[in-house]
Every structure is written in C-alpha cells, then in structure tokens.
Design a protein around this nucleic acid. Structure first.
Length: 773
DNA sequence: GAGCACTGC
C-alpha cells in the first residue's frame, strides 16, 4: 500500500481534508501540491518560487518579486538550502552560524514556511529578534520578498503593535513578545517552528527563551527549533541543545586591518582624539567611527575634535571635518545627522572632507552607519552590573570583551576594506579581555524574570536549565522580593496577586503599587505614576540653560516629593494643546512623555483585564495625595530611608548611608521617604523620592517591618515606639469598643425592661379601664 | 549639587 505521508505527489490527498481556512491547495498554484510538510527539497522549494502563481495568495507574482528573487538566489545561505533542510528534517534543533550579509534572517524563515507548511494546520513560524526595529524592518523586507502585503501572510508583533492577521504564517517578533505569549500558551502551540535570531547577543529574554524551548521540545516532538548566531562560539550553543548539528554560512563583509598601540594608553579620550586627527591627516578619504562610553564624554570629545580640526585646517590645510555625536537619548533629528555626507573639500581638488561619528555602544549593534572605513576602539563601555547584596543595578565603565571588540572592528568593513585602531596593546587584547561579554542574565536583578518563569509553569528555579546558570544569591533575592510583595506564598507558589503582577510588563514593585491602589481608590493616578517611572528621565537640563530648566521644573514641584511631581507633569502634558512645543518650552523630553502615555494605556488595559477597578478620589479630598502615597508604599516598602539625627539618610534594614539625589524636589529632608532608585556613583544617592509616614510602613507591610528581625538603628527605635503607640491605641480602642458594646447591651436591656414595664403598665391600665367599663 | 551603555514586555 502506498504511504501517502512519504509520497510527495499524493500530499494533497491528506492535506485537502484538513479543513483549514488557509488552505493553500485550493489556489491555482500547483507547485505547492508537490510538498509534504517536513519533507521538502531545495529543488522543490525553488520550483515553488519560480512558479507563475504565489503559493500563499494565489495571485500571479509581480515583476518586483522576480527582481528580488534573483538577488535572493545569490545570497550565501541559498547555496546551503538543501543542507539546511536535511539537517532540520533529521533533528529537532539546529544551530546556524552566519555572519553579516549571509541572508539567514530573511531566508531561513521562508525555507521553514515552505518546508513545514504551517498554514495547513493553521500554525505559524516565529522568528525572534532582540530589538523592535529589527523585527519590523525584517518583516517588511520579507513581505516584499514573498510578494505579500505586510501584516497579512507575513507580519510582526512587538510591544504596542500587533501587525499580524488570521492569514499570518510567518511572524517576526521581539523575543520578549514571544515570552509573553508563552505565559498564556505554555507550549507555544500556535507555532510549528521557532527561530531564535541573534542568539549570540545573549539578552535576558533570549536566554530564558532558549531554556523554555528545550522544555517545550520535550513535550512537543513536532516542533522545530533553529538557533541563529553571528559568532563562532557555536560549540556552546550546540552542546546546550543536546549536541545539535551546526550549519555555518559565510558572510559578506570586507576585510578589516587591525592595529594596536605598542604601549598601554593612560588617557583613552585624549588618545582617541589624537588617533582621529592623525587618520584625518594621513589616511585616504573615508568616515571614522569612534566608540566612547557616555553622553558627557561624547560631547566633550566632539568639542575638542571640532576645535582641533579647525586648527588643523589653518595650520596644515587639511580637509573640513563633520563631527557628529550619537547616543540613544539624543533627539531623533540630531541622530539623523549621522547619515549626513562628509563635507566637500574647501577648494576644488583640495584635501577631502571627513565625517567623524562619536558614539556609544548603540553603533555596535543597534544602528548601522554606512560608509564607515575607520574604527577607533578604546576598549571600554558602560555596562550594567548587579550587586545582589545591596540589590542594586548600576552602570560601570569596564573593559569590553574580545567578541565586542571584533564586532566594533567589523563596523569598518561594511562597504569596503577598512581599518580598526585599538587603543590597547595586542597583549592586552589576548590576555586581559574576556572572551565574551557576560550574558545579561548574570548582570541583572531577576525579580521580574522569576515571576515570569513561575507563570510559565517552571517551578524548580534552582535546577533551571540555563546556558549560564545565575548565582543562587540572585535567585534568592528575587524570591525574597516576590515573597514580601505577596506574589509568592511560603512554598514559593504563585499567589493570586502574583498572577496579577506577572501580567504587567513592568517591575513587580510597580505592578504591586497599581494593584494596591485599588484599595485606596486611586488606580488612575497610580497608573500614571507607574508609566512615568517606566520611561527615561523626562526632565531635560541642557548645559547652557540649567537655571531656566530648573525653574521650569520647579513649576511642577509637589511638596510631597518627586512621584507627585511626575504626576503633575503627566497631567500638565495631557492638558497641553501643542505637546511638542509645550515640552520644549518646559524643558521636558517629548519622547519620554509620549512613551509614558502609551505605556499607561497598556497598563490600563492589563488592569481592566485583571478586574482592577479604575478609580480616582475627589481632588478636594484632603486624603487625595496621602492615599496615592500609601499605594506607593505598598509597592516600595523595601526601599525606604530614614533621616538620622546627624542629618544623614540611612536605608532601612541595609543601613546604607545615602544622599537625596540633587535632582529631587524634596529640599526639606522629610524624616521617612520611599525611593524608586538607588544610584551608585562616587556617592550613594536615592533618586525619585517621596515622603511617607512611618505608621504606614507598619500598617501596610507588617511582615517586612517585623521589628524583631531588624538590625539596630535609630529608625528601628522610632518604629518600635510607633508600634507600641499603635498597640496601645489599638488596645484602648478595643477596650473602648468592648465598653461601648457593654454599654449598648446594658442600654438595650434597660430599654427592654422599661418597655416591658411600660407594656405591663399599659396592659394593667387597659385591664383596669376595661374592668371600670 | 549630579548624571544617563543598550534593549525589551
């Protein structure tokens, strides 16, 4: 008997009966009929692409499609299509390494669509990206390659925007988005294959997804998983995925010559500037990209480069310079300047002009600048580090890894052969730099992630199968936090509140604050505050107008503290008619406020979905602000500082000496404050601070403020006094209540007996009257 | 009296 599963020519017989609304076999396309899900060959796939009709839509292919197809056939990855298909047919996991220009991100997902025919079963192929822009732009590109409308057969899904439809068979999404989806669909049952792209970046979400995919694969033998990476660190990935086979695809870049300094540089900023000017004076035309660590450093370097560039023009008749800064908080119109052309020579046939882009790490992965030929790499970057002992994430300038250095160098070879100048010795590169940047999961606070894992049904966190297991202390800290917030019970199981908190795409403390706000009737206001705390700083303070900026901010200041000040700003922003101009006039970051507004909308929807009522107290109610501050306390009772008699703030329980951040509107130094952020620089600051009442702490978080487990300090003694007072007054109240009850009882008894007497008397009177009659 | 690498739900 013929096995129809193995006969590609009979495939339509069993597929026809699937009854799917996306049945591709009904169209005029015949080539699709040759395919059996999971058994296609490169030849069959190419025949499909060469057909007159589009197998996905039934329409005839456009001329544009045919032009693009020609280019697609030239991509390095296309030469390995059969090899790829053989591997994925024989394995559940495949690791694919492909350098820039290999075509893996656009082609592999298409090969998977043609191979697995997910539409037959109403399923999809997902391809994840660490960044939103990438997901959007790749989906756009692939929709053109497949000659379909973006959002139909090919779509993308990112926060705030779901550009997919019921027809979608190929979906590009951010890794965070797929993780969220897994929270409600633990087996990712809507997908027949998942492709994890840019896995080498090892973002927090990619790491969790990789672990999750291993878990899902065990329960779903039908799902295929492809892990794509740009580095040669492939063995680690292979080993992690049960010795998965490896496919290597060459890239298309130009060679980059690397130069080292003979001696270590003591001042990398000065060395960078000197190197840039030397390139300008001696090397042929071509733009320069310089990597520095932060905004201030970049602006300083730009000033110096411009000044010395002018001097060079005067003294040595060199070409004109265009110096452009680049960092993420730079306004978009300023960021656009990196795409400007290098200036023309000042005189015809004179020395050529040159563009110098001075950038942070954004230019390492997120942004690509064409025309860069020279890269200057001092070897440093600001990197996030997490200290679980003090529960603080902070940014530290630290040496980059060898992989990052290679990535930086590669930026010089995108359009033609280039040069990279490393401002450290070759010996230092080989001996001092670490191989790979530590994955984010080892450098982060895991509060939110642990909660998500619980929601994903992963309970045994200690034995969680991560590519790089995180430190037990970090896990402990996360569990502790979630337990105090009431998200986990004593057995570390998700509570009802925990379920609700996990639905919010924000820090657990913020989510708890929103949920608690319902008890105080102020969810509307707290939603706004939570949104404002989830965006980059809204207050601008340009160097040339600091005084004016401070005055503008003072207009919004609220005496209770910075959280209420943020609420004032948000309300004023919503009331402003010309938002962009209004922001500019008030020294506010329009981008941040706009983003706060969309986040608020998202949070509001999650609140509604979780039956959290949207409430506001009457503004004239004297408790309007105190109630909001109580809700704040319900989320942030673990971040409280007390002003000691010596004028210093001490964080509660940790006993760290901290200072109010100079940006705070609270100049009067209230005795008890909650803070949003612990900033670790030369000194320890607490930023975004609001006054609270000590009795609220005892009332709202008695489990955390269990004074018997407190380290001794002034704050403890004061809390003890208050606790005593509360206990005494509670006792008094109880006594009073008891007395009242007794009195009432006595009174009612008295009334009862009097009434009885009266009744008796009346009866008697009636009787007497009757007898008289 | 100071700072803000970069993503992401």
């Amino acid at each position: 008997m013929a096995d129809i599963n193995n006969n590609p020519y009979l495939a339509h017989m069993h597929n026809k009966s699937s009854g799917s609304s996306n049945n591709i076999f009904d169209g005029p396309n015949k080539a699709f009929n040759m395919l059996v899900p999971g058994k296609s060959t490169a030849e069959q796939q190419e025949a499909l692409e060469n057909d007159v009709y589009n197998g996905l839509t039934g329409q005839t292919y456009s001329q544009k499609y045919k032009n693009i197809l020609e280019k697609r056939r030239d991509l390095p990855v296309n030469k390995q299509r059969q090899k790829f298909l053989d591997l994925i047919h024989a394995n559940q996991f495949v690791v694919l390494v492909g350098e820039t220009g290999s075509g893996k991100t656009t082609q592999i997902p298409q090969y998977m669509v043609m191979d697995m025919l997910p539409q037959v079963e109403g399923k999809m192929i997902a391809c994840t990206q660490p960044r939103r822009v990438a997901a959007m732009s790749v989906a756009q590109r692939v929709s053109e390659e497949l000659d379909v409308k973006l959002g139909q057969e090919v779509g993308y899904s990112i926060r705030f925007e779901d550009c997919t439809s019921s027809k979608t068979v190929l979906k590009y999404c951010t890794d965070g988005m797929l993780l969220r989806e897994a929270m409600s669909d633990n087996l990712l049952s809507r997908y027949s294959a998942v492709i994890l792209d840019e896995a080498h970046e090892r973002t927090l979400n990619t790491d969790i997804l990789m672990s999750l995919m291993k878990n899902i694969a065990m329960k779903r033998p039908d799902i295929k998983i492809i892990v794509m990476s740009a580095t040669l660190d492939s063995e680690k990935f292979q080993k992690y995925f049960y010795d998965a086979p490896l496919l290597t695809v060459p890239g298309r870049t130009f060679p980059v010559e690397v130069y080292y300094t003979p001696e270590p540089e003591s001042d990398y900023l000065e060395a960078s500037i000197k190197t840039a000017l030397q390139i300008h004076a001696t090397e042929p035309a071509g733009d320069i990209l310089m990597f520095l660590t932060g905004e201030e450093e970049i602006e300083e370097a730009c000033r110096l480069l411009r000044a010395r560039g002018d001097e060079l023009i005067r003294r040595a008749n060199s070409g004109p310079l265009l110096v452009v800064p680049l960092y993420s908080t730079l306004p978009p119109n300023m960021q656009q300047k990196i795409f400007d052309q290098a200036p023309e020579p000042r005189t015809k046939g004179g020395s050529p002009g040159r563009k110098i882009v001075v950038s942070t790490n954004v230019a390492e992965t997120s942004l690509t600048i064409d025309g860069i030929v020279y890269v200057i790499d001092p070897g440093f970057a600001k990197q996030k580090v997490y200290n679980p002992r003090v529960r603080v994430e902070s940014l530290l300038v630290s040496p980059i890894s060898r992989a990052a250095a290679q990535q930086r160098a590669g930026r010089a070879g995108r359009t033609r052969p280039g040069k990279c100048f490393r401002l450290y010795t070759e010996k230092s590169f080989n001996n001092d730099l670490i191989e790979q940047t530590y994955p984010e999961i080892l450098r982060s606070n895991l509060g939110s992630i642990v909660l998500q894992l619980k929601k994903l049904g992963i309970n045994d966190l200690v034995h969680l199968d991560l590519m790089d297991p995180c430190a037990p202390e970090v896990l402990m800290r996360a569990l502790e936090l979630l337990h105090y917030l009431g998200a986990l019970d004593d057995d570390a199981n998700l509570t009802e509140i925990g379920h609700a908190i996990s639905e919010f795409p924000i820090d657990p403390q913020l989510a708890k604050m929103i949920i608690a706000a319902a008890d105080y009737g102020c969810t509307n206001e707290v939603l706004s505050i939570a949104a404002m705390l989830s965006v980059p700083n809204v207050f601008l303070r340009p160097r040339e107008a600091q005084r004016a900026a401070d005055m503008a901010k003072a207009e919004f200041a609220h005496m209770d503290g910075d959280h209420m000040t943020l609420l004032n700003v948000y309300h004023a922003y919503k009331g402003a008619t010309e938002a962009t101009k209004w922001c500019w006039d008030n020294f506010l970051q329009y981008r941040s406020l706009k983003s706060a507004d969309s986040i608020r909308e998202q949070l509001r929807r999650v609140a509604v979905k979780n039956n959290i009522p949207l409430l506001s107290n009457n503004f004239t109610n004297p408790e309007y602000y105190p109630k909001i501050r109580r809700a704040l306390t319900a989320g942030y009772f673990m971040q409280v500082a007390h002003l000691e008699r010596n004028g210093q703030y001490l964080t509660v329980k940790d006993n760290q000496i901290v200072l109010l951040h100079p940006s705070s509107v609270l100049e009067r130094k209230p005795e008890w404050v909650v803070y949003n952020e612990f900033v670790l620089t030369k000194r320890h600051y607490i930023r975004t601070v609001t006054e609270v009442k000590p009795e609220w702490l005892l009332e709202i978080a008695p489990h955390y403020y269990d004074l018997s487990a407190f380290p001794p300090c002034e704050g403890k003694r004061i809390l003890e006094k208050i606790a005593l007072k509360i206990a005494v007054s509670r006792e008094e109240q109880e006594r009073r209540e008891k007395k009242d009850k007794k009195d009432k009882k006595r009174k009612s008894e008295k009334e009862k007996s009097e009434k009885e007497k009266k009744d008796k008397k009346e009866k008697k009177d009636k009787k007497e009257k009757k007898s008289k009659d």
